[in-house]
Amino acid sequence: MSSVVSVETLWIVTPHGRLFTRRWFPAGEEGSQLKPPIILFHDSLGCVELWRDFPERLCQATGHEVIAYDRLGFGQSDPHPESLPMHFIRDEAERFFAFIKSALQIDRFVAMGHSVGGAMAACCASLYPQSCVALITVSAQAFVEEQTLRGIKEAKVQFEEPGQMVRLEKYHGDKAQWVLSAWTDTWLSASFSGWTIEDTIDVIHCPLLAFHGEQDEYGSALHPMRIAGLTKALGKYLILEDCHHVPHREAPDLVLDAVGRLLETSR
Rank of each mutant, 00 (worst) to 15 (best):
V13I: 10
V13T: 11
P15V: 05
L19G: 04
E30Q: 13
I38C: 09
L45R: 04
R57Q: 14
Q60F: 08
Q60M: 14
A61P: 02
G63T: 02
G63Y: 03
Y69S: 00
P85E: 10
M86K: 10
F97Y: 14
F97R: 00
F99G: 01
A103L: 00
L104E: 00
Q105E: 15
V110E: 06
H114M: 01
G117F: 04
A119G: 07
A122V: 09
C124I: 10
E145N: 10
K153R: 15
K153G: 04
V157M: 06
Q158I: 03
M165C: 04
K170S: 12
Y171N: 10
H172P: 00
K175S: 11
Q177L: 12
Q177H: 11
V179P: 03
A182P: 01
D185F: 00
W195I: 13
W195N: 13
T196L: 00
I197F: 00
T200S: 15
H205G: 11
L208R: 04
A210M: 05
G213N: 02
G213L: 10
G213C: 03
E214A: 13
E214V: 01
Y218H: 11
S220F: 04
P224I: 05
L230M: 08
T231H: 11
L234R: 15
L238I: 07
L238G: 01
L240E: 13
D242Y: 11
A251V: 04
L256R: 03
L256Q: 11
L263P: 12
